[in-house]
Amino acid sequence: MSSSILSRYLNPEYLKRVADRPIEPHGLVVGNLAGSHKSPLSGFAVEFAGHRDYIPGDDPRHVDWRLYYKRDRLSVKQYEMETNFVCHLLLDISASMRYGDESQQKLLYAAHAAMTLGYSIIGRNDKVSLATFDDQVRDSVPPGKSLTQLYRMINHLDQISPVEKTKMAECLMDLTARMGRREIVIIFSDFLTDLGALETALHGMKYSRHEIVLFQILHPHERSFEFNGMVKFLGLEETDEFLTQAEDVREGYLMAFRRHEAQLDEICRRNAIERVPLETSRNLGNDLVEYLNERLRVRVR
């Protein structure tokens, strides 16, 4: 894979900043591999399984100080009762996600966010998968936890082309049926879809006890409608064209957009789902670090 493709989806500055800010699961974690997370199970024997490098934030009680004095390196003891989690990255590649130019295109921004988080997850010896969807599930990369997994996901992203409408609810139900239970699901989309159907699909995920995070990716134009004069609007998922004076429709558009946002917020509140709004004009590294810091603060509380 060429360095130009890697740099399209990975920013070394962002990777360095998220490396010591892990995604810690807020709910139950059950797995069959040694990882860095507490098991929800108790009452079983705890068996030593090996070491891994210390990461800032690890409990000092788990540091193997004897090994430190011998090798001058901080390592953490791992046990069989410590478990891994699987994180599923689900990326909406429908036509509306191609709005925006260059680095501010929603799809590229979302893919960049997904790969940065994927890097952080793999760095903690946890598994990550990737699936893309529009009007159907297009392809998926099964869970893995090596750096090779990151290359597989990037290679998949570099081959997609957003041209179809979204049928998000149907795709999420399809993907839920392929997952295990009690895993983390992160969905990257603009969520400009039928929210009633979306809530039904999210209910299915919650029934399987998944932790769900919605990363809502929007372009600044969609939030503020910064258009003036006579403008021709072209449908990305429809073939319609709409020529109008921007000032005549701004107020109506913003009212409809705010209603949609309020409804999405209410769905997240009712279902205990995290919603992370991201805007493509903002620095992605700053926003991801802020989000990961907040997850750690919530976990500590």
Rank of each mutant, 00 (worst) to 15 (best):
P143A: 13
T132V: 15
C171H: 04
E164A: 12
T166C: 08
A169E: 01
L150E: 13
E164G: 02
L175Y: 11
N155A: 07
K165S: 10
R178W: 10
T148F: 14
K165V: 05
L150V: 14
D174A: 10
K165I: 12
P162G: 00
D174N: 12
R182H: 10
T166V: 06
M173Y: 04
A177V: 05
T148R: 15
H156N: 00
M168N: 00
L157G: 02
H156R: 03
N155E: 10
V141R: 00
I160L: 14
Y151L: 06
P142C: 03
T132M: 09
L157Q: 08
V163R: 07
T132H: 09
R178Q: 11
M179W: 12
T148H: 11
T148A: 11
S161N: 12
D134P: 00
T148I: 15
V141Q: 14
R181W: 02
R178V: 03
T166G: 04
T148C: 03
R182V: 11
S161D: 12
D139W: 08
P142I: 02
L147S: 01
S140L: 14
C171Y: 02
D158Q: 03
T166Y: 02
D135Y: 07
I160D: 01
T166A: 14
L172E: 13
N155R: 10
S146M: 06
R152P: 07
Q149K: 15
R138K: 06
S161G: 04
Q159M: 11
D135V: 00
F133W: 05
T176Q: 10
M168T: 03
R152T: 09
P143Q: 11
E170L: 15
P143R: 01
Q159P: 00
K167M: 04
T148K: 14
T166R: 09
K165E: 07
K167Y: 01
K165N: 12
D139R: 02
I154Y: 03
G144I: 09
V137L: 12
L157D: 06
T166I: 02
L175V: 15
M168P: 09
D139V: 02
R182K: 13
T132C: 15
M173P: 01
I154S: 05
Y151N: 09
I154C: 04
S140A: 14
S161C: 09
S146V: 05
D174V: 07
Q149L: 08
K145D: 12
S146A: 08
S161A: 14
A177C: 09
I160Q: 10
E164W: 06
R178I: 08
N155Q: 00
S161E: 14
K145A: 12
P142Q: 08
M173K: 15
C171E: 11
R181L: 12
Q136V: 10
Q136K: 15
T132W: 11
R138E: 08
G144N: 03
R182M: 04
L150K: 05
C171R: 01
M179L: 10
K165W: 09
